[in-house]
Simulated scan of single mutants.
Amino acid sequence: MKKSDFHFDLPPELIAQQPLAERSASRLLVLDAERKSMTDRQFRELPDLLKAGDLLVYNDTRVLPARLFGRKQTGGAVEILIERVTGSHEATAQLGVSKKPKEGAAIELADGTIARVLGRDGEFFRLRFESADPLEKLLLKLGRMPLPPYIERTPDAADNERYQTVFAREPGAVAAPTAGLHFDVAMLDQLAARGIESGHITLHVGAGTFQPMRTEKIEEHTMHREWLNVGAELVDKIHHTRARGGRVIAVGTTVVRALESASRNGVLEPFAGETQIFIFPGYRFTSIDGLLTNFHLPESTLLMLVSALAGREFILDAYRHAVAQRYRFFSYGDAMLVWPLRAGVGSGE
């Protein structure tokens, strides 16, 4: 398949630049891939679309204020976007700079801390932060919330809270698992009161999630690496849910990637480590029965994942419907609830 097979036209004004005043006030497009049906709903109606005994699985990663600013020894400005924290004082990062620094070069941050370039890791730079404070503490002091590149404004104080899910607890992401941004405490309480259960994985979303695919043949694409943890307690909960006839609904593509990475040989088992899983049409899912997700970028790997679940043509039809109905797109936008093809395989149509 080709990258261009996943193109759709999106008017720029539909890219949400600000979150809504209330998390759960977004719209919800409900898709049934088997029936090829689309229904326009409100996110607040989600409890009515689920049933007691269903299991919602969330990503509990917490976004770090991962954007830093500094200067080279020559005085040139440098923007640092942390990709992954790899140690107490080390990370891989993207560098926004006029001329790429060499190994050993120093970048001075606003408080005088030196970020030393250790070398390259593919498209990223390996950095060591020469600070008494561990890197996470340094980021909390100096960092700025790393809003996605399609949000064309400077982050403000409100983003520090709104670009986190209400259940975020494990620091390490540099992008939010955006499907979770629609949930507020009242919604979580309402779901629990209806007998709808919850569980958590951790997948630290990296900045690589925004990197465009550079190969036209999608099979030639190599995914970026992300760290995840699927614990034994959740695995048991998923098995029990399935055994009693409940459905497992992933809240976001990061949850899908985590659960499918932990499903070796079709059997879900506890797993902690890295994944580079790439899911596109033809993939057979084994761990989920539904997906709650935001709308994704044209020609992106995340759009390919959703197409694998429900069929490419049907998903593209749904996106065209969303554009016509003026849904809000991307991180601060509206959501979709996708019930997949029952065979578990999205066609490459």
Rank of each mutant, 00 (worst) to 15 (best):
F125L: 12
A33T: 06
A318W: 08
M304P: 13
K99N: 11
V205A: 08
L181E: 05
D5W: 09
L10K: 13
V306W: 03
F6Q: 04
A232N: 04
F329Q: 12
E123W: 09
A193V: 05
T301V: 02
G266Y: 04
T215Y: 05
F43E: 11
D184C: 01
L191K: 03
G70Q: 03
G76I: 02
F167I: 11
H7T: 13
L81I: 13
A186G: 14
I82F: 10
L138R: 05
S131V: 02
S198E: 09
K100P: 14
R120S: 14
H182D: 04
G172C: 02
P148H: 02
L228H: 11
T39E: 15
G231E: 13
P177Q: 10
G290T: 11
I279Y: 07
G180F: 04
L316E: 06
V78I: 14
L81H: 14
L309K: 00
A16D: 07
R126L: 05
E130M: 11
P148L: 03
M38K: 13
R242M: 00
G199I: 00
F69R: 07
G172D: 06
V251S: 03
T92H: 11
K217Y: 02
R128F: 10
P177V: 04
A207T: 05
R67Y: 03
A91L: 09
G346K: 06
A186E: 15
S88H: 07
A33Q: 10
G87F: 02
S131G: 06
R62L: 15
D156L: 01
E161M: 04
F210D: 07
M213G: 01
M223Y: 07
F43S: 14
E313T: 14
